[in-house]
């Protein structure tokens, strides 16, 4: 650290210290990365399922379902994720539900994420012209058949990029789980920082992990978008 504070390049000693720290804590760091992946993947998958369901509520012909959907979205979209996580971690045991910390984190991400996914799905559904739904109804399709076969498959095409945004939101939001004690990459680097006082290096590592995953998600999104666009034109086969 001495080399850094004098303003020059880190000396050989400082670099050695960092490498030693990383080597000694490789498993610890790796577990942090895996926890972040777990939080994000489970959080996003859950948010996708729940968010789509709430979106269906919000476009359904049944008024109580629409009201329920609106209240759900307005609550979970407008409460800070950290507040939500703290409520889950400290509130659920009060009503007799004791979840492991990791699953508290997943639950918070699913609840908050689904409110945003819901609005993505709903605006996707709204891009599909009313004629499509009329044609489906005129053929005798039920509300659910219509959604499954006609509306959602078309809506998905316009939803790919906004869903990537939702995914990245959940990935970055997962770092807040560190604050309630989930050992994700942010939490792990924080703990190492307390021991080694290498804030810059450690948080650069954590930042790089998020950056790599977010870029990866963007890449997958771009690939998916090309895939569905091709099938829409559908000409050359």
């Amino acid at each position: 650290m001495a080399a850094l504070t004098t303003g020059g390049r880190p000396g050989k000693d400082a670099m050695d210290t960092i490498w030693t720290m990383l080597r000694d804590n490789a498993t610890f760091l790796l577990n942090g990365v895996l926890t972040t992946i777990g939080l994000t993947v489970l959080g996003f998958t859950g948010a996708l399922v729940l968010g789509t369901l709430v979106a269906i509520f919000r476009v359904s012909p049944v008024t109580p379902l629409r009201v329920l959907g609106t209240v759900y979205v307005e609550f979970f979209r407008n409460v800070p994720l950290l507040t939500l996580l703290i409520l889950i971690v400290f509130g659920l045991p009060d009503i007799g539900l004791l979840l492991p910390l990791f699953w508290c984190g997943v639950l918070g991400l699913v609840l908050a994420g689904s409110a945003f996914v819901c609005e993505t799905v709903r605006s996707g559904i709204n891009t599909i012209g009313v004629g499509q739904s009329e044609a489906a109804r005129a053929l005798g399709m039920s509300f659910t058949t219509q959604l499954r076969l006609i509306i959602l498959p078309q809506a998905f095409r316009t939803m790919v990029q906004p869903l990537v945004n939702n995914f990245i939101g959940i990935l970055i939001g997962s770092s807040l789980a560190a604050a309630v004690g989930v050992s994700d990459i942010t939490n792990v680097t924080q703990q190492l920082n307390i021991r080694y006082a290498e804030a810059v290096v450690l948080f650069l590592i954590a930042g790089a992990v998020y950056l790599v995953f977010a870029l990866g998600a963007g890449g997958v999104g771009a690939w998916l978008e090309r895939l569905v666009t091709r099938s829409r034109i559908g000409g050359t086969r």
Binding site: Q132, E134, A135, A138, G140, M141, S142, I150, Q154, R232
Partner: peptide, 19 residues
């Protein structure tokens, strides 16, 4: 839905399913 299945409808804007 059962009734609509017995009544065919053709629209001005065709409304074919593009996918």
């Amino acid at each position: 839905a059962d009734l609509r299945a017995q009544v065919g409808m053709v629209f001005q804007a065709f409304n074919l399913f593009p996918h």
